[in-house]
Design a protein around this nucleic acid. Structure first.
Length: 308
DNA sequence: CGCGTTTGACCCGCGC
DNA sequence: GCGCGGGTCAAACGCG
């Protein structure tokens, strides 16, 4: 992507926390936010030394059974966290990534409206050039070690496009949620550095429960949120059965103190220079503020930057 | 017939 | 302005 966007990622993308504490069979816990996850996260499996993790998050008693009809055909390497940085539970299985792209004034606009507007302008392709820039939904990317590209996540998707990816032998597929009035999209592509890894990027939030998700699995969803606030993670097929507060997350004991990315490397994780640029790790105590976990989604990046 | 996929064309934003 | 690359559209097609 372009320079501005990369910069924006550095400015706005924040919270990252890792746990090497393996509990409940989950090898990882934590979240990280990336911008343009499908690109930036490309090397995460490698940098984290992830090879293969057997405990699927979907197998957890805490995790909703997202795909009862079709068990996850792969090992989830990374999952995403919720838009508002409602993080994956510490017991959840992996590294998650989130990206909020449109950190601007429009951000406060309800997703549905925004989506519809976007849809309208799309449909009327002829009267082009609505002078406002195209708004993007917050994005979440996660990586999955999988043989199949399109992973079952409890929602129904319709493929609407496929494009060859530059510098990659593998195409990128574009999916849209088939539910009417739901504008969630996702992109699926295979990592060209490790063909066994599928990078899935979600954009937007489902405005409806999962068609195949058992009802109880939505227990963690905030009532009255219209499936927007608390639903994002669930929307993205995340184990949301137990929702912890952000501070709870941050005070997990074994988070790597990564106020500087180099600490990560010292923990045996290798960050490529490019990746270091893209990801900001944070200490538990200061993470929230410094990295604007929640704030970055609602506060313009230039405001957040002042804290630096 | 309904739904999902495929695929070429088109749109759009951005850098040069 | 032009070209490139990412993203989307929509007609054609396949399948159950």
């Amino acid at each position: 992507m372009e320079r501005n966007e990369v910069i924006k990622m550095e400015e706005t993308i924040g919270s990252s926390l890792f746990s090497d504490h393996i509990s409940d069979g989950y090898p990882f816990s934590g979240i990280f936010d990336i911008y343009e996850g499908e690109k930036s996260s490309l090397g995460f499996a490698e940098l984290l030394g992830i090879q293969d993790y057997s405990p699927s998050l979907f197998d957890s008693p805490q995790a909703p059974s997202m795909a009862p009809s079709a068990p996850l055909p792969a090992t989830t390497v990374k999952e995403c966290s919720e838009v508002l940085n409602q993080p994956a539970t510490p017991n959840s299985s992996s590294i998650s990534s989130a990206s909020s792209e449109a950190v601007n004034d429009e951000q406060t606009k309800p997703v549905d409206q925004e989506g519809e507007q976007q849809e309208k302008t799309k449909k009327q392709l002829k009267p082009k050039k609505t002078n406002q820039k195209r708004q993007r939904e917050p994005r979440f990317a996660f990586m999955t070690k999988s043989e199949v590209d399109h992973l079952e996540d409890g929602y129904r998707w319709r493929k609407y496009g496929q494009k060859a990816v530059k510098n990659s032998p593998y195409p990128r597929s574009y999916y849209r949620c088939t539910t009417a009035s739901c504008n969630v999209k996702k992109r699926v592509e295979r990592s060209f550095t490790d063909r066994s890894i599928v990078v899935t990027t979600y954009e937007g939030q489902h405005s409806h429960p999962s068609p195949v998700m058992p009802r109880h699995s939505l227990a963690g969803v905030q009532p009255g949120s219209g499936f927007s606030a608390g639903c994002a993670a669930a929307s993205f097929a995340l184990p949301m059965a137990r929702t912890l507060s952000y501070s709870q997350q941050l005070h997990q004991p074994s988070f790597i103190n990564t106020s500087s990315p180099s600490n990560l490397a010292s923990d045996g994780l290798i960050l490529s220079p490019g990746l270091r640029r893209d990801i900001r790790f944070c200490t538990p105590g200061s993470a929230f503020l410094r990295d604007h976990g929640l704030l970055q989604d609602i506060v313009p990046s230039h405001m957040l930057k002042e804290e630096e």
